[in-house]
Design a protein around this nucleic acid. Structure first.
Lengths: 193, 193
DNA sequence: CGATTCTTTGAAAACAGTCAATCTGTGTGG
DNA sequence: CCACACAGATTGACTGTTTTCAAAGAATCG
């Protein structure tokens, strides 16, 4: 369960064995079966979560009951309702498993402890957040500047491994279009090749 | 020129006089006239920028030449092309002034120095980034879940002070709709009241 | 296999974009 | 003070895109 995490970290940050052990010693392991929830809206998010293997999704439900996927989190991704985690307010989002999934979790306090204790881990985390913000900005740009087809093509290009792993209607949800539209875009694109 | 920054900081973080002086001593002040550029795409972004007064916009230009506003930055906001600033790659974005504007700037190195020297300033900065990421996530959710009218209403509600300060066609650009659509939404909404 | 989930298709309606023209307000120079 | 230019906002007619609703066709899984 820790193996994917070790491999992931070793590529991102130089840690001593004792530092790695310290990080792992504070982790909680959890296994989720497909469709199982890690977080439900109105609950308070209390953990930072690393996906060891499998795939999660972060989504919200609007007033009409429709689901909108904010993010996919396959292995080696971090996921949480940051707003709830940081402020302690009830979450607006849900997190559930698209496949059987193993995760590692750290409570907010333990996670902050690790950042304080291990400077290189803090550096790593800072870069992670910075990257997340960049990715987020790029996605906003895509959303406001592209039509459905362009968004779809961009998604395939940016996240090929996610695209061929999750159902089409979830890609549609992530992009903010209906599944029917995405179906039509695909068949249309094939005819043009 | 430093006064707005002092007032802003005093509400956000507890700093000693000498810490504040240290921060200000590394700042570069700059005045921009309306329409003047702070950053042009393909240049490398080298500074963190705080807006003391006035208003900037961060935008990109797509393949058809159309402008898409990623963010407005009125006084007390920070703005930069983070991707370029962090990676040193050429910027994909432009920043220019919507009004005559005063800014404070710190080079990447000096800014990092301050974060290292002043722990409370780092804490403040971490929170700032965390908030930015939350705001970004919420905007993505709005983009994928709302139609033009809902996005417009949400924008007015979230940023009333920006809404009644920038031209309508820029709000349209920020929301990812045409100015004509936004005009129609407004007149339609008035008829319903 | 039966149930469920996912994808596709068709037709109509709603929504948003495009193009061209006009209107409005603001400020500048003569 | 007026005339003019300019930026911004609006309107109408039209086109194109996307959604909605309903139905049916694959694919997957226990």
């Amino acid at each position: 369960m820790f193996e994917p995490f070790r491999k992931y970290l070793s590529e991102k940050v130089a840690l001593t064995d004792s530092q790695l052990q310290r990080i792992e010693s504070l982790a909680i392991t959890k296994h989720l079966r497909r469709k199982q929830f890690l977080l439900q809206e109105n609950d308070v998010s209390r953990h930072h979560t690393f996906v060891s293997n499998g795939c999660l999704r972060l989504f919200r439900i609007d007033l009409t009951g429709a689901e909108h996927i904010i993010k996919f989190a396959p292995e080696n991704w971090w996921v949480s309702d940051r707003e709830s985690l940081i402020t302690g307010q009830p979450a607006k989002s849900n997190i559930d498993a698209l496949e059987d999934t193993d995760v590692l979790q750290w409570t907010k306090d333990n996670f902050n402890r690790l950042l304080d204790e291990i400077p290189s881990y803090r550096d790593f985390h800072d870069k992670l957040i910075a990257r997340a913000l960049e990715a987020s900005t790029n996605r906003i740009y895509n959303n406001i500047s592209m039509n459905a087809q362009e968004k779809y093509e961009k998604f395939i290009k940016t996240y090929p491994s996610i695209f061929n792993r999750v159902p089409l209607h979830m890609v549609a949800s992530y992009l903010g279009v209906t599944r029917e539209t995405l179906t039509r875009i695909r068949t249309h694109a094939q005819n043009q090749d």
